[in-house]
């Protein structure tokens, strides 16, 4: 049965990506329930695409693209944005953690909290690519698809982001891969 094949395919993707996607949502919205909602919504859209027979070549990139847009929409709803707020710079800023208290509530070890706080200090354009590369384990090619950028641009941003992170962490350039 084709529907059973679709279910199996979707379940495999879900088992592989659900934790990573949930993490991606949780670290941005700092609300477990909201992160669960966003994750579910992203997977529901993927399921709709699969069932309706649309060809999904890279489900991972699709999931992150959908989730990223869902998060942006969510931020726009909760923030009282001005017309200027709809500019590109503000769109990048929407990946800031909205409530620091909420961040502290997430159960993280000390090292993780420090890494996270340093990631937050990076410029938005570096922060997101570094996060997607090292926390979500996305390839530069996938990140390029998610962020609608050129793969070379992504690679450059990752490189510069890592350098900036090393400076923040006080690690010498030759001490980090």
């Amino acid at each position: 049965m084709p529907i059973d094949d679709d279910k199996k395919r979707f379940t495999d993707i879900y088992n592989r990506e659900s934790d990573s996607l949930f993490r991606f949502c949780l670290l941005r919205v700092s609300d477990r329930e909201k992160a669960l909602d966003l994750t579910q919504e992203a997977f529901s859209r993927l399921w709709s695409s699969i069932v309706s027979g649309k060809k999904v070549n890279n489900p991972r990139a699709l999931l992150y693209t959908v989730t990223r847009n869902l998060i942006i929409d969510w931020y726009r709803r909760i923030k009282s944005v001005s017309l200027e707020g709809l500019s590109k710079e503000d769109e990048d800023r929407e990946f800031d953690v909205p409530d620091e208290k909420a961040t502290l509530e997430i159960e993280l070890n000390a090292d993780s909290k420090r890494v996270l706080s340093m990631l937050e200090k990076l410029e938005p354009r570096y922060k997101e690519v570094v996060y997607l590369r090292y926390v979500s384990d996305l390839s530069p090619k996938d990140i390029a698809k998610v962020m609608d950028l050129n793969a070379n641009t992504v690679s450059v941003r990752i490189s510069r982001g890592i350098k900036a992170l090393k400076r923040l962490m006080g690690i010498a350039s030759n001490n980090h891969e």
């Binding site: 997430i106 090292d111 420090r114 890494v115 926390v135 006080g170 690690i171």
Partner: peptide, 23 residues
């Protein structure tokens, strides 16, 4: 913060996941 601490921090972040029941 050295390289090891950074790796620990990243792996700590990766431990954020849904419970089996939630999944």
């Amino acid at each position: 913060m050295n390289k090891e601490d950074f790796k620990k921090g990243i792996s700590g972040l990766k431990n954020l996941r849904m419970t089996d029941e939630e999944k």
